[in-house]
Design a protein around this nucleic acid. Structure first.
Length: 271
DNA sequence: AAGTGGACCTGCTAGC
DNA sequence: TGCTAGCAGGTCCACT
């Protein structure tokens, strides 16, 4: 589920509320994608600081070290005082004096990993190799063009890779390519500079718009206050195979690229 | 080295 | 109604 917008909206929905809270207990459920790791001292008694996002990861800073959280495909966080007994898909609770932060993740592709800092240990290892943030001023048409020129994979696959720019997953990669009018099958190294400019802009505006709309809720995504996203209601191509294109008189098509579904309009997205 | 395909795990839906 | 195959928002790893 969670691409950059869902992770960012989740962050915004609890960062202010949890800041300054003292950890009173930690509960770990079923194993997740990566082991939690063992902090040198218990997390109990530490104070929560800022919550920051890097790509699709959240870093929950504690007064010493912190927790790196990933929501995988089906994860969501909830923060509040009304959390009852953990259900079968609730795999991590950070209990604080102000409420419990709970990770729910049916498929368990998500993770909570302890790290001494964002720039060292487990976190640094997981974040190594991530591309630029889409809202970083350094991510522009020139940067995207230069990076794409070094690849021969389809441009959609290159966007999903996350080593050029982070945050666009399957939904938003499809949507951004539609906005830019680029066929997702186009080889990366055939994307001209002007088209790279358009694509970089489309990635930024698509992700920004999704954040404004609270992300996409396809199945079970909720922010940490329980609110669903609304972007999926305005998706132009994602999940719309067989339906009319919103821009031309063509029909949205579904193909498979790298074992992932791709949605696009052959009429207005060109190679 | 870059590109490709499989693995991880569970739940839901469409189709028979 | 009940079963099954197929599909799902991500990422790592092994292999070519």
């Amino acid at each position: 589920m969670p691409e950059l917008p869902e992770v960012e909206v989740t962050r915004q929905s609890f960062a202010e509320r949890i800041r300054g809270a003292r950890v009173t207990a930690v509960r770990v459920g079923k194993p997740l994608r990566w082991p939690l790791g063992r902090p040198p001292e218990s997390l109990v008694g530490r104070t929560v600081g800022d919550v920051v996002r890097r790509g699709k990861y959240l870093w929950i800073e504690l007064d010493r070290g912190g927790l790196l959280v990933h929501l995988g495909m089906s994860g969501s966080l909830a923060f509040g005082s009304g959390c009852g007994a953990p259900g079968p898909h609730d795999h991590f609770d950070l209990v604080t004096a102000r409420g419990t932060l709970r990770l729910t993740d049916p498929r368990r592709f998500g993770a909570v990993v302890w790290s001494p800092s964002l720039d060292a240990g487990a976190a640094a290892k997981l974040l190594a190799g991530l591309g630029l943030e889409p809202f970083d001023p350094r991510f522009d048409g020139a940067h995207l063009h230069a990076a794409l020129r070094r690849r021969r994979v389809a441009v959609k696959t290159a966007l999903l890779g996350g080593d050029i720019v982070v945050g666009a997953g399957n939904i938003y990669a499809c949507e951004a390519l539609f906005e830019a009018g680029i066929d997702p099958r186009t080889r990366s190294d055939r994307i001209s500079r002007p088209r790279a400019e358009r694509l970089a802009a489309a990635v930024r505006t698509t992700l920004a718009r999704a954040v404004e709309l609270g992300g996409s809720t396809l199945r079970n995504y909720r922010d940490a206050s329980g609110a669903a996203g609304r972007f999926q209601l305005q998706a132009r191509v994602y999940g719309r195979a067989g339906q009319p294109c919103v821009r031309c008189d063509g029909t949205v098509r579904r193909i498979v690229q790298g074992a992932r579904a791709t949605f696009f309009c052959p009429g207005c997205q060109r190679r």
